[in-house]
Nucleic acid binder design. Structure first.
Length: 192
DNA sequence: GGTAAGATGACCT
DNA sequence: GGTCATCTTACCG
């Protein structure tokens, strides 16, 4: 598999959050850590569209925590949840939205799997990066990576990955939320 | 200053 | 597939 090394431009994220969530499937996430690099293919995402989405952190408006979702597109929004876990989001929205972000829920490890296993405490393959908190741990991501620019080469960015066919995308309600479950804004890539 | 709920994961069966 | 540890955030006084 050939992976392009240039980050996706901010114009990729300057579109409706739901569209960007689908298009992020199959893209490659690149984590540069000093001289090492970790990469993986995005296989599961969720869209959170902002002030019209009761399940979105930004629904009630801007707060210290949700500030990144109102900021430049293509930046990260990381938050801490349930006492233990970090989750990685990419800010994406069009001109009609005040806020919005895409939660990265799962990746398939590509490069640096051994280090990911070490960071994860040597859990079994299947559970290495199959959850939003797990992939942050596997990539060594935490609060310090909040609101960083993912459209330029740096410690974290997204590049073109593999070709995805629409037939390979499954749509479901989002996980772990009680509101707006009629919106099928979780996207899963199968055959991965 | 107190409280309730939560975009979860590990472990067990 | 179910249980539970764990603590930040936001909201209400």
């Amino acid at each position: 598999m050939e992976i392009q090394s240039l980050p996706l431009p901010s114009s990729f994220y300057q579109r409706n959050t739901v569209i960007v969530a689908q298009d992020l499937l199959g893209k490659c996430i690149v984590r540069q850590w000093n001289s090492t690099v970790l990469t993986g293919i995005i296989t599961e995402t969720e869209a959170y569209t902002g002030d019209d989405d009761p399940a979105c952190h930004a629904y009630r408006g801007i707060t210290p925590r949700t500030t990144p979702m109102f900021g430049p597109v293509g930046h990260t929004y990381m938050y801490f949840i349930y006492g233990n876990h970090y989750c990685l989001n990419l800010v994406a929205r069009d001109d009609n939205q005040k806020a919005g972000a895409v939660l990265i829920r799962s990746i398939t490890p590509l490069i640096g799997k051994e280090l990911m296993q070490t960071l994860r405490g040597n859990v079994k393959d299947k559970h290495l990066t199959d959850g939003p908190g797990k992939l942050c741990q596997a990539l060594g991501l935490s609060r310090e990576h909040n609101n960083s620019n993912a459209t330029t080469i740096g410690s974290l960015y997204i590049t073109e990955g593999i070709t995805v066919h629409k037939n390979d995308i499954i749509q479901t309600p989002r996980i772990g939320i009680s509101k707006a479950q009629d919106r099928l804004w979780r996207f899963v890539l199968h055959n991965q």
